[in-house]
Amino acid sequence: MNSFVAVFKRELKSYFTTPIAYVFLIVFLFFSGYLTFKNGFFEMRQADMVVFFMNIPLLFVFLVPATSMRLWAEERRVGSIELLLSLPITVTQAVLGKFFSAWLFLVIALALTLPMVITVCYLGDPDFSLIITGYLGSVLLAGGFLSIGCFFSIVSKNQVISFVLSVVACAVLVFAGMPTTLNYLSAFLPAGLVSAIGNFSFQLHFESLQTGIVEFKDISYFILMIVGWIVASTYILEERKAY
């Protein structure tokens, strides 16, 4: 547990000692605000955050891999992984430590969008359960993307390659659930298969959380995704750490 905390603390600190955190926060906060107001926040004339949450998957597809790409790729390129894994730290502790610190960082980024909530409260009387489940969905989505990014960061020593691979993987898992994709697929695939593909995507479960209902299937989807990718990460790191 101590080793986990040590890795977690070090990683979180390193976000804020390098410019990464600030660049990420500024870009994320700017675009999340900009897209919300541009996509008709005022025109809707409703005190809710639907427009804000609608843009989250698109933003995260690019921004989460940007934070996760350095998690292991950097460590392997510089060679500090040899230092890390010759301390009394197991591979699982190291992977979890890094993953949770990056996740907490993303949660901080989401928490900083709180002025959005205040704006909505000022303008009207919003349904808080919708906002809370919206944030819950966003946090889980960030975790899901992050676990994928973590995996691809181990796959390649090169940060650019790991970034591109994780963007593609995340994008595929988001767009598979978009209505346009599903409509297109239903033209030639059996209905059961189409709905299976839809259920496999982040989009559907994310949207389902936006309705204000926390369903077991959505939560379990995100948890399974995260656990699956993290377990895969530990296995692959054990294999590739020294090469």
Binding site: N2, S3, V5, A6, V7, K9, R10, K13, S14, T17, T18, V78, G79, S80, I81, E82, L83, L87, P88, I89
Partner: peptide, 19 residues
């Protein structure tokens, strides 16, 4: 190999944490 973005003190404290 070391963590280049850390200060020497922070780094040694991290090693202490891990150990």
């Amino acid at each position: 190999p070391l963590y280049n973005e850390m200060t020497v003190g922070d780094f040694l404290n991290f090693v202490c944490d891990a150990r």
